[in-house]
């Protein structure tokens, strides 16, 4: 089956995202806009993944649980897990390694933990938009060791990317690289390329998904085997096709 996937979305937990963008709104909009598989990837934290799991169950859409981690060089990396617990564990391991920047919610934005009914559970009091005290190579290796799908984010963007911060894509344990537009070979280096919405506002959800061929039934909650591993296999065997604008989605 051909599935539409979007692995890069921020909820109201990310200080730079809209407060409207609850995990349940992402799940609902993803379904309404035709996605089959969607991941939540807040900056350096997975605390809204429990709500996202429940919201996706209600909407009948397949979820993955992730974090967009920020290396000390300020390179963003999407790290995806198959279960809420693995994502929460990874987030917990990052917490003590966030650079301790002064956090003023008035200026930087609130960081809201919610439940699947948009009830507020907590406000995170330390700044999640900060960089971690871990280098890019070490961060990717650690996420891969934990079994994550590792995707350097928006590698062709002029900020927070391997190209802007490192100047090139170093060798690493990546399953794919995420891009905003067709990539020159020196930035993809043979890795599969996916598009991603990097949504921060409701209108961004599903703006840049990618298509991927998956085995029949792979997205059913009762499917044998893990969706994460099925997706990893599909990415690595070249069965993903990025879309560079929404008009291309309806194409062949």
């Amino acid at each position: 089956m051909r599935a539409l996937a979007d692995l890069h979305n921020h909820s109201c937990l990310s200080p730079c995202a809209s407060l409207e963008e609850s995990p349940s709104l992402i799940a609902r909009l993803a379904r309404e806009r035709g996605l089959d598989l969607v991941a939540l990837t807040d900056h350096n934290s997975a605390l809204n993944c429990p709500a996202f799991a429940e919201a996706c169950r209600r909407e009948g859409i397949a979820p993955l649980f992730g974090i967009e981690a920020s290396s000390i060089e300020e390179v963003h990396v999407v790290c995806l897990f198959g279960s809420v617990d693995e994502a929460l564990d990874f987030g917990e391991s990052l917490r003590g390694r966030l650079l301790d920047l002064p956090y003023d919610p008035e200026k930087l934005g609130d960081q809201v933990v919610v439940d699947a009914d948009e009830g507020v559970l907590d406000l995170v009091g330390y700044y999640l938009g900060a960089a971690l005290s871990i280098g890019f190579d070490e961060l990717c290796a650690e996420a891969a060791d934990r079994g994550a799908i590792v995707v350097p984010a928006h590698v062709d963007r002029p900020m927070f990317s391997v190209s802007s911060q490192l100047g090139f894509l170093p060798p690493g344990p990546y399953d794919a690289v995420e891009a905003m537009r067709p990539l020159p070979p020196e930035l993809s280096r043979g890795f599969p390329v996916v598009s991603g919405s990097d949504s921060h506002y409701p209108e961004h959800v599903a703006r840049r998904p990618f298509a991927v061929e998956l085995p029949e039934g792979a997205l059913d909650p009762s499917a044998a085997g893990s969706l994460l591993e099925t997706l990893r296999e599909a990415l690595r065997s070249g069965r993903a096709r990025p879309f560079w604008d929404s008009a291309a989605r309806s194409g062949p």
Binding site: E73, E74, L99, L101, P102, A130
Partner: peptide, 8 residues
Amino acid sequence: DLLSDVMA
């Protein structure tokens, strides 16, 4: 050139 360094 590191924005978190500038912030801090």
